[in-house]
């Protein structure tokens, strides 16, 4: 679903900041752009045409989608769903995140997300036996 479909959720965010202190990303940085509140303002700015997709990409990927923000949200908003919709549209628009591209490439080439060879799987089997 395009991010425009989530405009009403983005507008429902009252920007109270109750999402901040439980956010695992915000707690690391204290940067409001990393909290749900900041993300909703960023996406609002995107919808208004004040920001471009390439400018918002990095901040949208800085989210674990853990939903801690929903647990404390004054309005009970499903922020993770909005972030995931933004990510989906980012990918469609050619702004997939670098790590995902690496994982996809590794899976294609080695069938292992980390790019390790088949011996890694054998080592894991050994570990499981011990």
């Amino acid at each position: 679903m395009p991010i425009e479909e989530y405009r009403h959720v983005i507008m429902e965010c009252v920007s109270c900041g109750l999402c901040q202190s439980n956010c695992p990303i915000y707690k690391q940085t204290n940067l409001e752009s990393n909290s749900a509140k900041g993300k909703m303002t960023i996406l609002y700015s995107l919808l208004q045409g004040w920001l471009d997709w390439d400018e918002v990409a990095e901040r949208m990927y800085e989210c674990t989608t853990c939903k801690n923000c929903t647990a404390t949200c004054l309005s009970g908003l499903d922020i993770a769903a909005v972030v995931e919709a933004a990510r989906a549209e980012l990918v469609e628009r050619g702004h997939g995140n670098a790590i995902s591209k690496d994982i996809a490439k590794n899976l294609r080439e080695t069938h292992n997300p980390f790019g390790e060879g088949s011996d890694a799987r054998e080592r894991l089997k050994e570990l499981a036996r011990t």
């Binding site: 009252v14 900041g38 400018e55 901040r59």
Partner: peptide, 15 residues
């Protein structure tokens, strides 16, 4: 010191 537009937008609101 943060100057990127995306972050400045994120600081543009309160209630």
């Amino acid at each position: 010191v943060i100057t990127s537009k995306v972050d400045r937008m994120a600081y543009s609101r309160d209630l």
